[in-house]
Design a protein around this nucleic acid. Structure first.
Lengths: 101, 101
DNA sequence: CACACATATTAGAATGCTCTAATATGATAG
DNA sequence: CTATCATATTAGAGCATTCTAATATGTGTG
């Protein structure tokens, strides 16, 4: 259960979701990702570390560049399923206060 | 994109995940959920409000009881898919620092 | 070697989330 | 209509996450 929460935590931030979408169809270097995604180099690097630590993405070094890619088809699928689900519950979600305290 | 983050936020807390699992196969009253899930009545009530606001669950009142249930099959499916994904990336996720700052 | 570029790391400030404790609301039974 | 049970709401303290700014590490090039 704790592990499951951690896994989902990987998806639950705007920048991390943007990173995942950015590399959904092709691996990219950090610089390319920084161009695609809002946020500073430092912040994005930290989010990449989180995603890698959570097992959602993989990296490989090639010269001075580091390439990141989606780990596998299941991660890819779940991103697609989020989109499907979103279509269905969009209205409800938009009115969510999102703050529960 | 903001809506998508909100949606996923609904899944990204231990108590909320426990609530979803608790009502995965049958609707339950708040009291039943409070028995199933760790946390105080107040806290669980707040998380139920979050899940409802995010469109993941639905409620209906019957007398002095309020019954909660999973919204639809897609929400049900995504919970199943999290389990599948978890099986595949368990080791990686367990070593995740989960704190990126 | 020294420099430039790509990426990662760190500390701590800023922000956001979740809990507790107390109270409120709404429903039914007596 | 009063008491009781079920659930919801609120404020604010406590805690966790994320950002910024600065610096470090590693790699290739002249």
């Amino acid at each position: 259960m704790d592990t499951k929460v951690k896994l989902i935590h990987g998806f639950s931030h705007k920048i991390r979701l943007q990173i995942l979408e950015s590399i959904m169809n092709e691996e990219k270097t950090v610089s390319q990702i920084v161009d695609d995604v809002e946020g500073s180099q430092s912040s994005i690097s930290q989010h990449l570390a989180c995603l890698r630590g959570c097992g959602l993405i993989l990296s490989r070094q090639e010269g001075k560049y580091v390439y990141y890619r989606i780990r596998n088809d299941q991660v890819h699928n779940i991103l697609t399923i989020f989109d499907d689900l979103l279509t269905e519950v969009q209205t409800e979600v938009e009115t969510c206060e999102h703050y529960i305290g």
